[in-house]
Simulated scan of single mutants.
Amino acid sequence: MSTNPPELQWLDGDVPKAMGFEDTYFSKAGGLAETRHVFLAGNQLPARFETTKTFTIAEFGFGTGLNFLTALAASRAVENPPELTFVSFELFPMTTDQLAKALNAFPELSDLAGELVEKWQPRTGWMQVNVAGANLVLGVGDARELIKDLKPETQAADTSSIVIPLVDAWFLDGFSPARNPELWDAGLLRSAADLTAPEGTLATYTAAGWVRRNLVAAGFLIEKKSGFAGKREMVIGRKA
């Protein structure tokens, strides 16, 4: 089925802004550095990659794929890379040209980005694609509905379910909660907690009070940390 690509404005030449949400996909101060500060360091990565044979990351908001590619590059850089599963959701997937233009801003990731762009054929529903040995599981549509299709390997699942390992780390990266409250919904975060491994972690750039309360209600222990590039606070957490 066809998808609805986002309407974009390009700031400073290469920073995409989603007009429908009035928000950028990554920081103008540096998208790669932001991902490393918030989502990798916030989930104690890449150190955790060094101590496991498999690792599963899940994310709300695939966007440009920058978080996926940054995590993949970090996992491949350790001595014995784990088998990486990356589960993500996106309501408005970029076109191939939009994705390629956005990722051109990160030459350090060019090889991995080229493979992702080459295989990029988003369609409504679920798709799975291998990118440099990682299993990318992408749900295109409303995350609040699609997450119901996911079942952890520890539970019995019917043939219509998408079976995934328990999630070790969450990247909560939807657009601003004020502009995109659906991806910070209390029910969605409870569903995320249900898919999370014991002591699984999360990180997000936002420290909005109602988001923190929803995370606590979902079953996560959270704390504030210093944000990226002058942003006062961000939030990390782990499953209680």
Rank of each mutant, 00 (worst) to 15 (best):
F92E: 11
A193N: 04
V15H: 08
T35Y: 00
L84E: 08
L103D: 00
Y205V: 15
A229F: 15
K231T: 11
N130V: 07
W170F: 06
E115H: 11
T3W: 13
L99V: 09
G30V: 07
L189S: 14
A58R: 02
T124S: 04
P177T: 06
G227R: 03
A58K: 04
P81G: 04
A197V: 08
F92H: 12
D14L: 07
S110F: 00
S226A: 09
E90G: 02
S88Y: 14
V87Q: 05
G63K: 01
A100N: 03
Q128W: 01
L146G: 08
V131R: 00
M127W: 09
D111Y: 08
K28W: 04
V211L: 07
L136K: 01
K151Y: 05
L188V: 12
I164D: 07
L221E: 12
G63D: 01
W10T: 10
G31K: 01
L189Y: 10
E118T: 07
K231S: 09
A134I: 02
W210K: 14
G61W: 04
P152K: 06
L221D: 09
T201E: 15
L183R: 00
E233K: 12
I222W: 11
V117G: 09
L195E: 10
Q98D: 13
A143T: 08
A134D: 03
G209P: 03
N130F: 04
G174I: 13
D12F: 09
Q155N: 11
L69C: 07
E118G: 10
Q9W: 15
G237Q: 03
T206I: 07
S110H: 06
V131Y: 01
V137H: 03
A113W: 03
L8D: 06
T204V: 11
A102Q: 03
L69S: 03
V38E: 01
V129H: 01
E199F: 05
V235A: 14
A71D: 01
L11V: 12
T54N: 13
A217Q: 04
Q98C: 08
N4W: 05
E233D: 14
T201S: 11
D142E: 04
V211G: 01
L138S: 01
A169R: 05
Q9N: 11
G31E: 07
T54F: 06
F60I: 11
E223T: 09
K148W: 14
T52A: 07
